[in-house]
Amino acid sequence: MPDPIHQFEIKRLVPFDLFGLDATFTNSSLFMVLAAGIISGFLIVSMRGRSLVPTRLQSLSEILYEFVANMVRDTMGAGHGAMKYFPLVFTIFIFILTLNMLGMIPGFFTVTSHLAVTAGLALLVFVIVLAVGFAKNGVGFLKLFVPSGVPIYVLPLVVMIEIISFLSRPISHSVRLFANMLAGHITLKVFAGFIIMLLGAGGAYGVLAILPLTMATALTALEFLVAFLQAYVFAMLTCMYLNDALHPGH
């Protein structure tokens, strides 16, 4: 049976040393560069005409823009202060979406199925939320941990829970995306392995291969949905966390 873990292996393509750090150009790096290139290329080329009446590609870019802009406006308010973070949310959303979608192409590497990448993005959001929160509100940002309307005798407990839930945000934020992509790709590979096993067994078993084939087909459709949905969820949570930084009062 083919190894379902093999697809996640990091292949070291060009060894590279950066100030003593291991900055080897791997297949993961290759797909990150590829995704960044595809996104920049598409968004710039599709808008080349700057038409008042958009072409198909241009309207796709505009739909993506409006989709994320509405997400930012709905969660963080329509003010100029919120739209300052729109490029960040858009970059996070489109980067994850493209990496997830590239991973759906057979033989391609899924960058977001590695914890280091999703944790890196989640920590980036966490650090930005902390920085923005304290820069905008000063000590008032700590109000985030003190919900209003809570009786004084349970307040210490509630504050502790709030702090723990705040600190665990980057964990849930990163593991959600990582685990979804990892589990989805493993499941797909396992079912694909069943098809090969049954066909290899020959005879009547070959006919049974139709069952995992059906399953793998359905799972592929589901995985496309998950690929979009997880990018959306990651961006949406980023918006909500940034909203906490801008308006810490519950």
């Binding site: 990091i10 750090l21 791997t26 993961s28 858009f90 990448v117």
Partner: peptide, 25 residues
């Protein structure tokens, strides 16, 4: 695998953010 991934994530994400926020968006 953490270091190479994080370093290239930082490089590509920073480059993408710069291009998108300065030009494309």
């Amino acid at each position: 695998n953490f270091a190479p991934q994080l370093i290239w994530l930082a490089i590509t994400f920073a480059a993408l953010y710069t291009v998108l926020s300065r030009v494309a968006l």
